[in-house]
Design a protein around this nucleic acid. Structure first.
Length: 418
DNA sequence: TCTGGGGTCCTAGGACCC
DNA sequence: TCTGGGGTCCTAGGACCC
């Protein structure tokens, strides 16, 4: 049996843990640059605030109902996530971290799954203050479905199991096809033309039709909903094949110097992520573009691929090549909105070059030291080309404290002497 | 005026090889 | 008049996820 455990309204819950006065109050968390809504507490959902709407569109409703609005605080959410995950991992036989707020559990060999599941849910809440829900079933897709029921109906007490065919069919009949894991907007529309409205309708289609019209991807979902497992546990996440870092600017940027600082910073971030997975890259892609929404301004979208002579994970080298790429594509006279770096052709070994003159061992030691210091002190050491980022940084006007990762921002409690 | 960021997988079609 | 067959690799585009 598979379990899918998932944090309820994760980002909103994280904000609440350190600010209990927000319990039972509407909260929303915004995307980077305070752009649009990416997380809502139940109270905000009840107010009709939709996922993904631009922040300015909820201004009125937020004022009227006193909604607390936060910029994304990924440092806090990432740290809370690892606390949640480690508590789960301590209590179950096998865990697959699927996203920042979700994990699959393998319950193979467990006698009383509901008992253990309920205990994990309780322990996570007790240990972190984050409420979680658990769905259990024979396939991952059905476990996802069970999880939705665990969240929706309080009678389940946050744990819902689909362990009989009767329950499975009932759950499928109550689920709209678009809410199934793996069925997106496009397929929902296509299926509606076939008269498919619920997940149950979908399972009644012929396998041949599904295969022909929805490829093997759709066929796997079809099988999983019928109780045939197609997705196994993946405990050690496979190394990434590409690593991308990009950001939109808070304000548009038109000069080369600021653009190059942003590119250098993204390249350095990519290099750090690359070293974390012990990889080496052979090329990178630099891209820059203007704001497509502003049709009144001249538009420019461009990217370029830079090949490395020798695969590397060295920040200094990768920043250097990224800046070479930027030089090739930069054009004066445009208002740039977004830039990024994508590292590609990742391998786990580096083939040394015959004419390579760099002392690679020494540089690897340097990078190890940099990573160690930055790991403790939060990106203290930088390449000079990264600059200070004051002109192109994110818009984050409503940021909460880094309660768990910065000594200066640890929560303080005022105790008045009696 | 204002709308995120980081990934994966699959398929079709073209280039190229023997 | 008539012009093979099988395979790999790469890329772009589409679809999906959180």
């Amino acid at each position: 049996m598979y379990g899918l455990i998932d944090c309820n309204n994760f980002y909103a819950s994280c904000e609440r843990v350190f600010n209990p006065s927000l319990n039972d109050k509407p909260i929303v968390v915004l995307s980077n640059n305070d752009g649009c809504v990416i997380a809502r507490s139940n109270e905000s959902k009840a107010l009709g605030i939709k996922m993904g709407v631009p922040a300015y569109q909820i201004k009125d409703i937020a004022e009227k109902h006193n909604v607390s609005i936060f910029s994304s605080n990924y440092t806090l959410y990432g740290d809370m996530s690892s606390r949640v995950m480690s508590i789960i991992a301590e209590n179950v036989p096998e865990l697959e971290i699927y996203s920042i707020d979700e994990a699959f559990i393998n319950f193979e060999g467990i006698q009383d799954i509901i008992k253990l599941g309920s205990e994990v849910v309780r322990k996570v809440y007790k240990g972190t203050g984050i409420p979680v829900s658990l769905g259990i079933a024979h396939t991952k897709t059905l476990a996802k479905l069970a999880n939705k029921f665990a969240k929706k109906y309080t009678a389940y007490k946050r744990v819902c199991i689909i362990d009989t065919d009767e329950k499975r069919i009932k759950a499928l009949q109550l689920t709209k096809i678009g809410d199934v894991w793996g069925i997106g907007r496009r397929q929902t529309r296509k299926l509606a033309q076939q008269g498919v409205i619920t997940a149950y309708d979908f399972t009644l289609l012929s396998q041949a039709w599904v295969r022909k019209n929805m490829t093997v991807v759709g066929e796997r979902t079809w099988k999983e909903l019928r109780g045939v497992a197609c997705f196994d546990m993946e405990s050690a996440p496979p190394a990434k094949k590409q690593i991308c870092t990009s950001r939109s600017f808070g304000k548009m940027i038109d000069d080369y110097d600021n653009l190059s600082e942003a590119i250098a910073t993204h390249a350095a971030t990519c290099a750090r992520k690359l070293r974390q997975q012990k990889g080496y890259a052979s090329s990178l892609l630099v891209f820059i573009h203007t704001n497509g929404v502003r049709v009144d301004l001249p538009q420019y979208w461009k990217n370029t691929l830079v090949k490395f002579p020798i695969p590397t994970c060295d920040t200094l080298e990768i920043v250097h090549y990224a800046l070479l790429g930027l030089k090739q594509i930069f054009m004066n006279g445009y208002q740039y909105k977004k830039v990024g770096v994508i590292i590609t052709e990742i391998t786990n070994t580096s083939q040394l070059g015959l004419f390579d003159e760099m002392d690679r061992e020494k540089r690897e030691r340097l990078m190890e030291t940099v990573d160690r210091i930055n790991g403790k002190h939060g990106q203290l050491l930088k390449v000079a080309a990264q600059g200070n980022g004051c002109k192109w940084k994110l818009k984050q006007e409503l940021l909460s404290q880094h309660f768990t990762t910065n000594y200066k921002e640890v929560i303080s409690i005022n105790c008045k002497p009696k």
